[in-house]
Simulated assay, not measured.
Amino acid sequence: MKFSKDIKRYTDYSGKSALLMLLTQQGLWSLFYYRIFNAAYRSHIPNFFKRIILMIGVVFQKKVEIFTGITLPYSATIGEGLYIGHHSGIIINAAAVIGDNCNISQGVTIGVSGRGSKRGVPTVGDRVYIGVNAVIAGDIKIGNDAVIAANSLVTKDVDSGTTVMGVPAFKVSDRNSHDYIL
């Protein structure tokens, strides 16, 4: 189950028990509801029942969003092992795709932007580290093992295994995310 991989990432970083992490980490609270309602969204249950479950899901997710400041819509595609380092100000677009074992810091936005053929939402690869207050927007691809530095605005594709920073973001090194991702 994907949620167990999420919990493992938290316990690996902190060295503390899963129970303590579940009781104290707002990122896990948000991921818990996301995983439940995303499973319902992707299930093959009859549409009538699915709609009822998802309406309930919207209410639960909105409560968690207000309490934690984390927006994880059930229709987004988020791989296993997501780690949200600090809560608050995190907004993920409902159509965004995020790979496995990524780290998202506080204040991150992964959203829609662009014009014409570049209008859309990002696809984020596996093991990507996204720093504090970074914005990733538009129909772009972030490669595996990339690092998005704090306060960066990413509106163009990012190659795998590179670090970008700035407004607009540009490549600053070939260092990958291995030092940031456990």
Rank of each mutant, 00 (worst) to 15 (best):
M1F: 10
M1P: 06
M1G: 08
K2H: 07
S4I: 14
K5C: 11
D6L: 08
I7L: 15
R9E: 07
Y10P: 06
D12P: 00
K16D: 03
K16L: 04
A18D: 11
M21G: 05
L22T: 03
Q26G: 07
G27E: 00
G27L: 05
W29E: 02
Y33I: 10
I36Q: 08
I36F: 13
F37K: 04
A40K: 05
R42Y: 13
P46Y: 13
N47D: 10
N47L: 15
F48A: 09
K50R: 15
K50T: 07
R51G: 02
I53T: 11
I56T: 10
V58Y: 11
V59P: 00
F60R: 05
Q61H: 03
K62H: 07
K62C: 01
E65P: 00
E65M: 03
F67W: 01
F67I: 02
G69S: 09
G69W: 10
T71L: 13
T77M: 05
I78E: 06
E80N: 15
E80R: 15
L82D: 03
I84F: 03
I84Q: 01
I84V: 07
H86D: 09
S88D: 11
S88N: 14
G89K: 05
G89S: 09
N93H: 14
A94W: 00
A94T: 02
G99P: 02
N101T: 00
N101Y: 14
S105G: 00
Q106D: 06
G107Q: 04
G107H: 05
V108K: 02
V108L: 01
V108H: 01
I110P: 06
I110T: 09
G111T: 02
G111W: 06
R115L: 14
R115Q: 10
V121Y: 12
P122R: 13
V124S: 11
V124K: 13
G125R: 14
G125N: 13
N133S: 14
A134F: 13
A134C: 10
V135R: 03
D139N: 15
I142R: 11
G143H: 13
N144L: 12
D145E: 15
D145R: 15
A146P: 11
I148P: 02
A150V: 03
N151H: 13
L153E: 00
V154W: 01
V154H: 01
T155N: 06
K156P: 03
D157G: 13
S160Q: 15
T163C: 04
G166E: 05
V167M: 09
K171Q: 06
V172G: 04
N176P: 02
S177Y: 12
S177M: 11
H178R: 12
D179M: 09
D179A: 14
L182A: 02
